[in-house]
Nucleic acid binder design. Structure first.
Lengths: 195, 195
DNA sequence: GGACCGCTTGACTGCACGGTCAAGGGGAGC
DNA sequence: GCTCCCCTTGACCGTGCAGTCAAGCGGTCC
């Protein structure tokens, strides 16, 4: 693989990736066949295998892009905020907003995390995003504003709250992002600070 | 379906269910074929379809049993504890212990929640277990010991923390149940109480 | 010993799907 | 107008798997 692509080729590749992402997210990985993808784009099956090695490789690329997009959203929201606790809050809010904008990807992430073939990739991506949070938590611990527990564990707790609330209230119940984000932030910041 | 079964038949059915549960949990739903299940038990394929309508129905039964078992574990741990906050704590600890005892089912739950066919069943089961927590939270709110937010939302936050920590630290990293449970309880109780 | 019936067998069917490939189009450069 | 090569076509292949079924076994009851 790793073909040399003309601009036209690059555009086709982008098209396939975008369309497949949408289908995977909306209907799931297994129910979306390669035939679905190419016929949805009105092209022959050979096109798919010209640009991608396999359905599995495509999926990995879809996941990588989505995780990158989420992480970028978090980083953009945080900017150069100096206060570590505030950075944690901005991160939570940015995640919620991203989950809201990309509702259907929530399912795909959950599926990928449960499938042997994709779980490692998901873990790697999650660890990268999580490392950011761990940094903020560590700083906040030093400042004495967060309980002195394992920062990795605290960061996972935040992730758990954010993910669960997003899945249930944003994805399933269409609740208002801001309200859910407020609740998540309140719960997490108090959970972090200790009594 | 709904056959009349002799004791011998009931035993076979139990056998199939138990074996399938283990296989689904350890290797996943899709990778486990009906042929795998029956050959693992040394019986013909017809046996399977004598006791179950389809692979999908079997899976639904597996999920129902597992969710029931988890809920029973929670209820047994809580007993008739009068303090609602303590009930929440006991629930969290019981869940962690159950996740520890049934590590491999964690994956299966996550898969089922992401698959269109099984998600409704998972949601229903989760709601039942969640309703218990909501009751405790409501009581605690009345007593002024938990912030006055939507109890449903707070309960989901607890579930999020518990699930994420169990998945990451118990399932993936083999950490000590008690330590993780302590951390989850501390985070959640402070998150609930508000500052 | 015969009839009944719960239970078992395993070859077979149909089908969906990932992936292949020989053949052909068409734009760019000469 | 010729050549080159990126790109496209879609019939075809192999495989794996859920589910079927006609036939048979063996315990139980009369």
């Amino acid at each position: 693989m790793e073909r040399r692509l003309t601009p036209r080729g690059k555009e086709r590749r982008r098209q396939l990736l975008a369309f497949a992402t949408q289908r995977f997210a909306e209907h799931g990985y297994h129910p979306t066949s390669v035939a679905d993808i190419v016929s949805g784009l009105g092209v022959g099956k050979g096109v798919f295998y010209w640009y991608f090695e396999s359905k599995e490789q495509l999926m990995l690329e879809v996941l990588r892009e989505a995780q990158q997009s989420l992480r970028r959203a978090q980083q953009d929201a945080i900017g150069d905020e100096p206060d570590p606790v505030r950075r944690i809050e901005l991160g939570i809010r940015a995640s919620m907003a991203w989950f809201d904008r990309n509702r259907s990807l929530v399912n795909l992430f959950q599926f990928a995390a449960s499938e042997e073939r994709f779980a490692p990739a998901m873990r790697r991506g999650q660890e990268v995003a999580l490392a950011d949070t761990v940094r903020h938590v560590k700083e906040a611990v030093v400042e004495g504003r967060v309980r002195d527990s394992d920062p990795d564990l605290l960061s996972h707790a935040i992730l758990g709250v954010t993910g669960q609330l997003a899945r249930t209230f944003i994805h399933e119940r269409n609740a208002s992002v801001d309200e859910i984000a407020d609740a998540a932030v309140a719960f997490c910041l108090d959970g972090l600070s200790g009594s």
